[in-house]
Design a protein around this nucleic acid. Structure first.
Length: 306
DNA sequence: ACAATATCCTGCGAGC
DNA sequence: TGCTCGCAGGATATTG
């Protein structure tokens, strides 16, 4: 799912293809009463405003903030997109027929996961930037570029591990006095960019059980988490993101991080850590499935048992 | 202050 | 073969 490496891969793709292109048409079939009154193009009234605002403006550049994508336009507006779980941008020549939008070219863009087109931004070179979003969870809104830093969707996002020093990272994490390390790592207001897949992989690498209470983790270990987070997220970026499920890059192609998983979705398999004879197990932690080794990621008890 | 649960939505694969 | 159902997980709201 789009976490930091997937979002970064997408933003890199946007900057590769879209700088200087002008938005000449806007189409969307997002519809959900759930979003009435909210800043999201799923709200009909908001969508017509969105259209008016972004039309005829060239794209300046794109940027990532945590897991959010910002597409800055020359007219002083920015498009803010959160892909949530199943959203991803695609770039190509698209034609609409009675079945919906289809890429002109055969190949990666015709991948089944690339066929859930909910938003089409037509460009002045005849191509389109489209958003495929199977489960319709994505958020798309517009905002004045200058107002971004005060908008909660951006201001509540903490720096990512690359933007923090080790000291800064530890300070952020230490804001929580208790709570489980997996949930804390995925809390975007403390450290941004890490989601379910990468948190599992990081915790595997630092030998911590996902439910370890933050109060039981010392400074040295927190430093290790920072180091490993950066390393693993970098690897994710280098491999073009994770396509365990539906994620595709802007060309419609898969990333390769899923081939390097040590624990994520590997329940039942033997632990890949050298010399460890454990087994990978799955447990729901904070409503999300955590994958970890039952041997070298043992839970450190912090509470005194009766 | 933290934990658990439901919600948004669709597709897939397991099992009957 | 064809159905039902659990699962997938980002963020947020609500309840405990």
């Amino acid at each position: 799912m789009p976490e930091l490496p997937e979002v970064q891969t997408t933003v890199d793709g946007l900057n590769k293809y879209l700088v200087g292109k002008k938005i000449t048409s806007v189409w969307s079939d997002y519809n959900s009463s759930y979003f009435d009154g909210k800043e999201n193009i799923k709200n009909k009234k908001y969508f017509s405003l969105f259209k008016k605002t972004v039309l005829n403006s060239p794209i300046k550049k794109s940027e990532r903030v945590g897991k959010n994508i910002l597409i800055h336009l020359k007219n002083g507006t920015s498009i803010l997109v959160h892909m949530k779980m199943t959203g991803h941008f695609l770039y190509g020549e698209y034609k609409k027929n009675n079945k919906g939008w289809l890429p002109k070219e055969s190949g990666a863009l015709r991948d089944p996961f690339n066929r859930h087109i909910r938003l089409v931004l037509g460009l002045d070179n005849g191509k389109s930037l489209v958003l495929s979003d199977m489960r319709k969870f994505a958020k798309v809104m517009f905002i004045k570029t200058k107002a971004l830093k005060d908008h909660p969707d951006i201001s509540n996002i903490a720096p990512d591990p690359f933007q923090l020093s080790m000291k800064g990272f530890i300070e952020k994490i230490r804001q929580k006095k208790s709570g489980r390390i997996k949930n804390i790592l995925m809390d975007q207001s403390l450290v941004s960019g890490i989601g379910n897949i990468y948190s599992d992989e990081v915790l595997f690498n630092v030998d911590l059980h996902p439910e370890t209470d933050i109060s039981a983790i010392n400074e040295k270990k927190l430093g290790e988490i920072w180091v490993r987070s950066k390393k693993i997220l970098s690897k994710g970026i280098d491999l073009g993101g994770d396509s365990t499920s539906d994620y595709r890059n802007i060309e419609g192609k898969r990333g390769n991080f899923q081939k390097k998983h040590q624990v994520y979705r590997r329940s039942g398999q033997s632990c890949p850590k050298r010399g460890c004879l454990g087994k990978i197990i799955r447990k729901v932690v904070g409503g999300r499935s955590a994958h970890f080794c039952n041997k070298h990621q043992k839970l450190v008890e912090t509470k005194i048992k009766k």
